[in-house]
């Protein structure tokens, strides 16, 4: 039984990425986990300060709430740009065509070698001088361009980890390379790719705080504006920190739930 059973199991390597949030393990069914503790305390802290001291905190919350919306818009746009770029980059890095491979690798090297903040300034102010595009789109493009390189590495590793036998089986049936990628490789790779992509997405959300230097109304920017008029940095930045924490905790749980859903076919039950 052992030998066949081991053969059946697909390799499911986890791709560890150090920044971003900690994605809760979907198989962890305990009530008290680092995640549940953190979310409970964060929500408790948020409610208690608002209820007990509405004077600065409720005002701050009202003041920064449009920043929350901007942050989400920017995050979703940024991810929407980063994932296709990441996929193309990942495929490019796996390409046997030297030129394509070189272009993709060059992009990754360059982007990873330049701090995000510098890239943001360059794209937003520098490149933005030549093209008239809305602020939001410019910022989202800058984030997506940068995170596309990070995600490219995830896609590369995820696609590369797919059992070559799957590809051979698909090609033997008569599927061409594109069909094989679309019908077999990507759906299989997606399961491996999802946790780190979710992780990067959360990291992207956190990094949207950087756009406050571009005078975009992210949560942090709104917090700064509040501080400049009310001189209460502890309260304002404390609340901003709490908001970021709650958002990332909820999103990381969301990724965890999606991950569990993708395991539908990976049944560890003994076959009947």
């Amino acid at each position: 039984m052992q030998t066949t059973k081991e053969k059946l199991r697909l390799p499911t390597p986890r791709i560890e990425v150090t920044d971003g949030a900690n994605i809760p393990d979907p198989s962890d069914k305990r009530l008290v986990t680092a995640w549940s503790l953190a979310i409970t305390l964060a929500l408790l802290a948020l409610f208690s300060i608002i209820v007990l001291r509405p004077a600065p905190y409720w005002d701050i919350l009202n003041f920064v709430k449009d920043g929350v919306i901007v942050t989400f818009q920017l995050t979703f746009l940024g991810i929407g740009i980063a994932i296709p770029i990441g996929l193309i980059t990942g495929l490019g890095r796996l390409s046997k065509n030297r030129v394509i491979n070189m272009i993709a690798s060059f992009y990754v090297e360059v982007v990873r070698g330049i701090p995000l903040l510098v890239q943001l300034c360059f794209i937003y102010y520098g490149v933005g001088r030549f093209f008239i595009i809305p602020d939001m789109l410019a910022a989202a493009f800058a984030m997506g361009f940068c995170y596309g390189a990070y995600m490219g590495e995830i896609f590369r590793a995820g696609i590369d980890a797919i059992d070559k036998g799957q590809i051979e089986a698909s090609r033997s049936l008569g599927f061409n390379r594109f069909q094989t990628m679309r019908l077999i490789v990507l759906p299989l790779a997606w399961r491996t790719i999802l946790p780190p992509v979710g992780n990067e997405s959360i990291a992207l959300l956190k990094d949207t705080s950087l756009v406050s230097i571009l005078a975009m109304t992210s949560i942090l920017q709104r917090g700064k504006e509040y501080v400049s008029s009310n001189m209460s940095p502890f309260e304002a930045y404390g609340l901003v920190a709490l908001l970021y924490l709650i958002i990332t905790l909820i999103l990381s749980k969301g990724v965890s739930i999606m991950e569990a859903k993708l395991n539908y076919y990976d049944n560890d039950n003994e076959y009947k």
């Binding site: 697909l10 059992d163 036998g165 698909s170 033997s172 299989l188 076919y265």
Partner: peptide, 21 residues
């Protein structure tokens, strides 16, 4: 080659069924 392969059924040592289907 994809048309030629449609006439050649292949069975592998490791089965290689698509696990997500």
């Amino acid at each position: 080659i994809n048309l030629i392969r449609q006439n050649l059924g292949m069975v592998f040592q490791g089965f290689n069924l698509f696990p997500h289907k």
